[in-house]
Design a protein around this nucleic acid. Structure first.
Length: 564
RNA sequence: CGGGGAGUAGCGCAGCCCGGUUAGCGCGCCACGUUCGGGACGUGGAGGUCGGAGGUUCAAAUCCUCUCUCCCCGACCA
């Protein structure tokens, strides 16, 4: 490709809206163009890289036993009503009406459609296991697109679905996919960590995410300094300390004028925070729910949402709290009735807690569960943060941020039972197909690859993803000798199958060098009057500083070595 | 949806508070010339309904009202 003809100009100044590195470099390199919030056009260079990523994924999916197919983006809305996931996705589902006012949805994922497809085609255990996948555009009306390609509303995704006879067989498929995913990231030159994850709107049981560690990542990853435990903060658990084993004492009301927050109450009464119980109020599907947790911990809303199996959850506002007869700042579950109470299991660790007295400026001392109050549900709803201790090994937990570049789920029989996807087993009994699903966002992977492979000058492509192998740069292109030597080398290298980006522009050397660094092609070849004096070209790797003179007749051999 | 910010040429910005003739600057773009190994220089040029609608005024990029869009921080996710 001749740079002089290539669509998509490099920029000297980056549009001010770009804050993350990958977004800035994608724009600066002329790879993407924003059409609307979270909607991008991929220009030729980006498209080449996306195609390479797709091809790596395709090869690994095929090697793992996947069969590629293609399902429609446009889906009847009833499909989503039948599965009930129209509610789970809520406004995230893009919907539209056709000319007959029939409601349609743009597919955000394809469990429903593929389950329907499979139930019509799979009748016997002999048809299983089965892995089907597609690489296709997905639509999700995200509340907040961000970071260029990191979070968008229209994106290319590889989604694979596995179908097995039972849980054990699903475990095998799941492990196969886990390994295939590791292969994909390795081939893409990406360092990832696998973390335990919440399964979110997709549903199901076990779930893992593949994270690229990056400051700009949206997710918080909790990992252990002592063992290999790592989890998304949504899912992470920790060892909750047990501060007190003292004897139960008598419940006693104390005046706490002006003390409302845990900090204020604890310091007023001279007790540590983990000897208090915190009260937090949520509106859950229109109903007020009282949540209590030990004072040193915070509530993890994802865990709470899962525990309550609800679709809408938010903090209650002052008015809603007042209407429920609760006293913010002095609330507890003692004497409470008519309100659902959810507790973190930390309330059973420790004794003689300070809790609210349900009237202003007063608290109880020596509150104990279950002696003094009841709860409707007690489970782990604590938010883990750095400094907590690992539940596995007791080591200190640490926190970092990451970009989720892949997510795999064990779905179990949720979809197959709901949609009647059964098979006949060897013994003639009818059983539900056991499913898994496995997704990779292609554009996000591209962004993550740039986040992880760049310097102050620009992108540094791994050979596997690079849009071109060689940046062939003719200096002094107005000089006939240089021009014809560069042209000759260009056509020879193209003929040998190298992907060459030929900078044939009449530009100053500085401009060309900067664009070469920005575009990040792994090998740069300079042809100039100077190099031609010794019948050579200059060869430089993007990631190195050193340059090397290589005789013209040895260029091909050299490239083969460098790009291997 | 809650909180913050921004819309003036392809990109980066100034002008707006304090209304006043043909709306500026840098980069990029086009032409010619000089340069030629790390974003060169000169001369000449093209490019703008100042996000949109309404209002106030003799006069609006500038003041008022409404509205749209985009970005950032949170809830959602590949």
């Amino acid at each position: 490709m001749r740079l002089s003809k290539m669509f998509g100009k490099t920029l000297r100044e980056v549009p001010s809206e770009a804050e993350t590195v990958s977004h800035q470099l994608l724009l600066k390199a002329g790879m993407i163009h924003q059409v609307a919030s979270g909607v991008y056009a991929y220009l030729p260079v980006a498209w080449r890289v996306l195609r390479k990523i797709e091809q790596i994924i395709r090869e690994e999916m095929n090697a793992a036993g996947g069969q590629e197919l293609s399902m429609p983006v446009l889906q009847p809305f009833e499909v989503w009503e039948e599965s009930g996931r129209d509610l789970a996705f809520g406004k995230g589902l893009f919907t539209l009406h056709d000319r007959r006012e029939r409601k349609l949805a743009l597919g955000p994922t394809h469990e429903e459609v593929i389950t329907d497809l499979v139930r019509r085609n799979v009748k016997s255990y002999r048809d299983l296991p089965l892995m089907l996948y597609q690489i296709q555009t997905k639509f999700r009306d995200e509340p907040r697109p961000r970071g260029g390609l990191v979070r968008v509303r229209e994106f290319i995704m590889k989604d694979l679905y596995s179908f097995d006879v039972n849980e054990e067989a699903l475990d095998v498929s799941y492990k196969t996919m886990l390994q295939a995913y590791k292969n994909i990231y390795a081939r893409c030159g990406l360092e990832t960590v696998v973390v335990e994850a919440d399964s979110g709107a997709i549903g199901g049981k076990d779930s893992h995410e593949f994270m690229v560690i990056a400051e700009t990542g949206e997710d918080e990853v909790i990992y252990c300094s002592g063992c290999d435990y790592s989890a998304n903060v949504d899912k992470a658990t920790c060892a909750k300390s047990n501060p007190s084993e003292e004897a139960l004492m008598t419940l006693e009301e104390v005046a706490t004028p002006g003390a409302r927050t845990i900090e204020e109450v604890a310091s007023f009464l001279g007790v540590p925070k983990d000897c208090t119980l915190k009260a937090v109020f949520y509106m859950v599907d229109g109903e007020l729910v009282f949540v209590t947790i030990r004072g040193d911990l915070e509530v993890n809303e994802v865990k709470l949402r899962n525990a309550l199996k609800c679709s809408d959850l938010r903090l209650a506002n002052d008015e809603e709290v007042r209407d429920a007869g609760l006293v913010a700042g002095s609330a507890s579950a003692i004497g409470l009735s008519g309100v659902k109470v959810i507790a973190d299991d930390s309330i059973t660790l420790g004794r003689n807690f300070v809790v609210g007295a349900n009237k202003a400026d007063a608290h109880f001392k020596n509150a104990n569960y279950p002696r003094d109050f009841k709860v409707d549900l007690i489970t782990d709803i604590a938010l883990v943060s750095a400094g907590h201790l690992c539940a596995e090994c007791g080591g200190e937990l640490l926190s970092t941020r990451g970009i989720e570049v892949g997510h795999i789920f064990k779905l179990g029989t949720v979809f197959s039972e709901r949609q009647g996807a059964f098979y006949l087993d060897r013994d003639g009994s009818q059983k539900s197909i056991v499913m898994g699903c496995y997704g990779i966002g292609i554009g996000r992977l591209l962004a993550a690859a740039i986040e992880q492979n760049h310097d102050e000058k620009g992108i540094i492509w791994p050979v596997s993803l690079t849009p071109y192998h060689v940046y062939l740069c003719g200096l002094d292109m107005e000089n006939g000798v240089v021009d014809s030597a560069a042209e000759k080398l260009y056509s020879e290298l193209e003929r040998k199958g190298f992907e060459v980006l030929f900078d044939d522009r009449i530009e100053s050397a500085g401009v060309k060098f900067n664009d070469a660094d920005l575009l990040g092609v792994p090998v740069r070849i300079i042809v100039s009057q100077r190099t031609l004096k010794s019948n050579s070209v200059e060869v430089k790797l993007r990631r190195d500083k050193e340059t090397e003179l290589v005789p013209l007749e040895e260029v091909e051999k050299k490239l083969t070595t460098l790009l291997r």
